[in-house]
Write a protein that binds this DNA or RNA. Structure first.
Lengths: 197, 197
DNA sequence: GCACTAAGTGGAGGGACCCTCCGTATAATA
DNA sequence: TATTATACGGAGGGTCCCTCCACTTAGTGC
């Protein structure tokens, strides 16, 4: 995925311990800054990580590589949340928890979006990978709920993704509005009571 | 719309002739450069227009203002093409001509899109205005065709806009593919022959 | 025509940013 | 411990956006 991952697999010497540590520090620093500022500079990332810019560029040759790495990491975390919720909660709790977590994640990406679009343009595979993994995470949670009969059967996880993703990236909705809408979507996801009309 | 337009309306002295001339030169230079390079610098725009950067900034205080002005100008041109086609061509010729012109216009905006999105974010009204004017232009042409019976009646101009706009901005289609698809859409726009099944 | 003045112009330079280069430092190995 | 490939740091080159202000000029009233 990243340069380090690739190098670690090549035959020669393994990656040095300080390099791996710095890689993690840089990734964490970058995510923090993108979250806090929505936009940031290479110098700021290096400073926050406590290394020189030269080190940053050794790990991420171009700015866009930082953006891509942060995004991949974010997707990993969303997937991990889905797996954790499925493993530790009741079917409905997992749906409720994960959908809220997903919206929190996606909403936080709004200011990051311009950068992300450039990364998608440079590397279209990134978009497809991320989409597939996110949809798989939602499916995991939703289909479990459907299997347990606590989620209506006439909707797919992918459709829920198609509903919530664009909602979060819509510039006109506030965080509070998104949360209320998720609540509404959750109510709608419950199996319909027998039709009374 | 632009600063000059506003100033010209204010009571004091009218805008000086050289200022208006430079405004036009700058706008033309900016459009040329955006078309040719897809991206450009303020220095390059000023140089192409034959003025100093100070003059550019007097007319367009921020880079985003140049982007906005170029875009508004582009929309004006599309609208003008629609009006010209309607005035000088048969109903079907106008549909054919305008749809091709529209795709040429929209396709050319692809590399400009990142800049444009920023302008939309800064000024959401721009997006709405442009959309309304473009839809009105398509409606003008399509509804005239429908009135003359050369365009099927069960489709609206806005729907055609919704079909062609995203097609042009889709990064995965080449210019040739867009043209062939327009040809296909045009065939589909003809009134269906009486159903034979 | 002429002098006056508000409007307009040009471009050096400040500051931010991306990225490169290379001398220095250090982890892994023998 | 000596060796060496690997990794680090940060000065500085190049580009870009934008500001500032001394200078120029178009329009106005006489």
């Amino acid at each position: 995925m990243t340069i380090q991952d690739e190098r670690a697999e090549s035959p020669g010497r393994p990656q040095r311990a300080d390099a791996r540590r710095n890689h993690d520090l840089l990734l964490r620093a970058a995510r923090e800054l993108f979250d806090e500022e929505g936009d940031t500079s290479m110098e700021a990332i290096a400073k926050r990580a406590g290394v020189g810019v030269g080190t940053l560029y050794r790990h991420f040759p171009r700015r866009i590589d930082v953006v891509e790495a942060v995004y991949r990491d974010d997707v990993d975390q969303v997937v991990a949340v889905a797996e954790r919720d499925v493993a530790t909660m009741t079917p409905w709790e997992a749906v409720d928890s994960f959908l809220h977590a997903f919206v929190t994640y996606a909403f936080g990406k709004r200011r990051f979006l311009t950068e992300l679009r450039e990364a998608f343009e440079k590397n279209p595979e990134l978009r497809c990978d991320a989409r597939e993994r996110l949809e798989a995470a939602i499916r995991l949670v939703v289909e479990r709920g459907q299997g347990a009969g606590v989620v209506r059967a006439d909707v797919t996880g992918d459709e829920v993704f198609g509903l919530l993703g664009p909602m979060c990236t819509s510039a006109s909705l506030t965080r509070e509005q998104c949360d209320r809408l998720v609540g509404m979507v959750l109510d709608g996801l419950r199996p319909p009571v027998a039709a009374t009309r």
